[in-house]
Nucleic acid binder design. Sequence first.
DNA 1: CCTTTCAGTGAACGTGCGTACACTGAAACT
DNA 2: AGTTTCAGTGTACGCACGTTCACTGAAAGG
Lengths: 249, 249
Amino acid sequence: MTAAATSGQADRDVTPNTVHIRTPKRRPVVLATLTPVTVPPISPTAESRSEKKERTRRAILDAALRLTEDTGLAGLSLRQVAKEVGIVPTAFYRHFDSIDQLGLALVEESFGSLRAMIRDVRQGTPSLGQIVDSSVSVLVDHVRDQHAHFGFIARERSGGSKVVRDAVRREFQLFERELATDLARLPMDHWSADDLRILSNLIVSAMITTSEEILRADPRDLPDIQHRARTQLLMVIVGALNWKSNASG
Amino acid sequence: MTAAATSGQADRDVTPNTVHIRTPKRRPVVLATLTPVTVPPISPTAESRSEKKERTRRAILDAALRLTEDTGLAGLSLRQVAKEVGIVPTAFYRHFDSIDQLGLALVEESFGSLRAMIRDVRQGTPSLGQIVDSSVSVLVDHVRDQHAHFGFIARERSGGSKVVRDAVRREFQLFERELATDLARLPMDHWSADDLRILSNLIVSAMITTSEEILRADPRDLPDIQHRARTQLLMVIVGALNWKSNASG
DNA sequence: CCTTTCAGTGAACGTGCGTACACTGAAACT
DNA sequence: AGTTTCAGTGTACGCACGTTCACTGAAAGG
């Protein structure tokens, strides 16, 4: 895909062929502003300057997310993004200082998705078996649903830019720590903080690999993957319980 | 038409400043060739044409391995590699059709390192606890030792080029399958092939994450990582044993 | 000895890249 | 109403890239 007919000439960069977000010719219909100043004219049709800027910013983020799917952030160029969004290359700088900064914004956003997933898992935590089941199915659903974000994380985790890579790493460590405190609430008698971290690190590892598999899997293989993830999670938990009681009674 | 030299100097690419591998002025001293033909003149100083080609090939592979450390294969250019090796860009094509082909060669080579590691682990397999200990310490040693290869795998596993990514994936699947047959030899009573695959998949996941951590870790954190890996591996194995006997005794 | 092979050369090409700079025109502010 | 702000424009630059092509000169081989 993404052919876009690169016509020769010189440095043209013409024909955005995607949505142009220039001002619509519609005039803003201000209803009845008794208060004369400082109140932004709220109206259904018009768009304030900052709203429009925000909209362009979003468009850039979305375009980047789409384009990195093929090449990774390393192979993403400012000009590509600009063309996809329908702005001139230099206008990019109105929103981000560099591609790296764009990457950091995407890291933040992507881990937002991940945190939303965790919130779903936390909703009521009955038996241990049910936790495992619901965790895995929530994981599968979210990864499919937010595949752009999860794919981005998977790619940039070991990707080209050091700043972005480090940002992803930091987020995962944070996440691992949160999981450890969650695990502490389960009935595991008197685990040390260290051991909890080790366990949650293992679980996060398995979760990452599972996510990567879900991302590239054919939809009809999903039940298999789900079954596997469920089994693995059980193995780990059961193992943790038994190992602990065996090793240090 | 349209010559239009962009600017004075234009396309220079001069000063390789690294080792030039042009022929040394030394003449090959052929000792006493009674057999007149087809036997390559073996002599300590001279280098046959194919030997020299092989040497350049190696230099290219090494240069690529070094350069991808910063940018990943995606950010690696033919010209960079050529400059690093000390040849002209076009000479690259004498050895590889494209950067992708170079990538595939590196995948093969890197998994060679991994297989060598496995061979080390297999050397005598006493008790289960010892297997875990030696496996982990061998892993840590090999990853530090062959960090270029392991780093390459880690990076390109989710990296830019689809061909390379798929090649890495295939190698890991192969590896996972081998581990499953290895596990079958351990005293785990009557596991199904499916369950063995699930278990080995989990172990490989943990191993990958551990390797990635070793790669970027400060050397003085290695004992911690080793301890963690050891604990995790034990958790998984103990868990697998107990889970199996519990679930489908 | 003469011919063929082929790793490496060197100039040239067209392209896409990041970035600088001066600009425009509508929204926002006073 | 007059001024300032600022998202987006358009041109131009120098640079690195992949790839082409005709070449060179030493090794290989008859």
